[in-house]
Design a protein around this nucleic acid. Sequence first.
DNA 1: GCCGTTTTCGGCCCGACTGTTTTCAGTCG
Length: 582
Amino acid sequence: MNKHEVAHILDEIGTLLSLKGENPFKIRAYQNAARAVENLSEDLQVVVDEERLEEIPGIGKKIALKITALVNTGKLPYFEKLKKSIPPGLLDLLNVPGLGGKKIKALYQKLRIKTKKDLIEACKKGRIARLKGFGQKTQDNILSNIAKIETYGKRVYWWDAEKNAQSILEEIASHKDVSEAEIAGSFRRNLETVGDLDILVSSSHPEKVMEWFVKRPWVEKVLAKGPTKSSVLLKTGLQVDLRVIPKKQFAAALIYFTGSKEHNIRIRTKANILGVTLSEYGLEPLTGARLKKAAQRLTPKVLSTEEAIYKFLGMKFIPPELREDMGEVEAALKKKIPELVEYKDIKGAFHCHTTDSDGHNTLQEMVEAAQKLKWQYIGISDHSKSSFQANGMDEKRLFDQTKRIKKLNGSKKFSTYVFAGLECDILLNGKLDFPDRVLKELDFVIVSVHRSFNLDEKTMTARIIKAIENPYTTMLGHLTGRLLLKRDAYAVNIPKVIDACIANKVIIELNASPMRLDMDWRFWHKASDKGLKCSINPDAHSVAELEYVRAGVNVARKGWLEKKDIFNTLTLAKVLAYLKKR
DNA sequence: GCCGTTTTCGGCCCGACTGTTTTCAGTCG
């Protein structure tokens, strides 16, 4: 059993325990362990074999035993027994806002409610309102919340949210009663998808700002309106929450609402050790305990900026995109926060399509657009013949394109240099779509899986590694094939693929298409430490999509990557030299 | 169930909001 499956089961154990009304800390222990496993950058099997599970923070003796059983036998009697004791429909009830483990347990025990359908019926008959601990309002809310999650409650791509975000923020920031405005939440953390936009402003006239906000023309529906917090729904379906905060608490609130929740928990724990407590309102001495030294240093200045708050806690400033409790707090305490890559570091990009396969713009148009972006180079890589669906090129069309590219470079028409490449299909058996004698004529070769997604993990991993071992492979394209919000990653052992790429000097692409962002940011930190190089590739099918590189940079930052880790921050001369040696 | 600058027991982030009940439990972010 692989780590995703193990993490999923641990998480489900936590959920099932919550439906039993178990100790909340025990529930959290399972959820923490699930996260720890999911975020593991090594092969779980290896960690199990070497009996190193308990070295992972959040995994103790008991959970280590359970993980070992799952990895080695694929079974866990404890889990099976737990699952049998709870009707499957109850899990779904947790998705209803307002219902948690305790309430669901009560509904099941007193009214035998097992599914959402049972619940709706009971509400309509007024049976919920009569239950102790529930009431008329709870019953009404359950019904309206069920309707709400079915209509909205979807996540959107970060890229799409951004289209709304920047203009809304600018409009709010320009209001005369607003002194500071920032977007917080998962959007600020550059998460690949976001559920809503959290906007924070500081103002001395909160009511005025709120009145004005809910009447903006882009507001479709006002979900809630209060003196300091309002929620609205945009015409695009995106929910926007606006919070008005007093100026002196703005920085603490910004940290709090930026999250992540796990990051907040971690820094609050650190604050407690110093004898203070951190909340969205700032830092206060811990009550009850003897006033510690650190608490005596608390002054208004400590709260003036995020930097100052982190500094008080003994940490370097943590960029928002790193705030996921994936080692950033420890790094900040050691003052070892990386200098994250920026868009201005990008010198060019690979993996661009043209009308020669399934792109919407011609070779000339793509190069012209790259020149406008001041890129020193662009790598053209259209599809190979097996990708019929994408109008993949046969040998003849490929050579024709290569010839045209050489001619274009020779003409000096554009200041942007063009590399002639290919996005070559990885066939079912791991061989590439063209023989070596064809591939060796190209400047670079990206290898990608475009079909036969349903292999088991072992077969898929071996297939991809075989393609990586081809001497003409330069880069591995969209490693897992995932389409965010649409299609899951296929089964593949990512740590093994990473190791194979390092061993064969193959670069892994960070596919910057906002729908892919693959390989996932969670793997990059450890992989780059081991020596893996990343290329931020737009996978552009039109001139407009060259902009996707920005989305890739955002996620590369989230993966702790620095300029030195990114292939396409190299100058043209260095890239030429690298590809020559290939 | 995990963990240890309060170290093998007794904590575990913190506060707002809601709805119920009349002092608080449950849920949420």
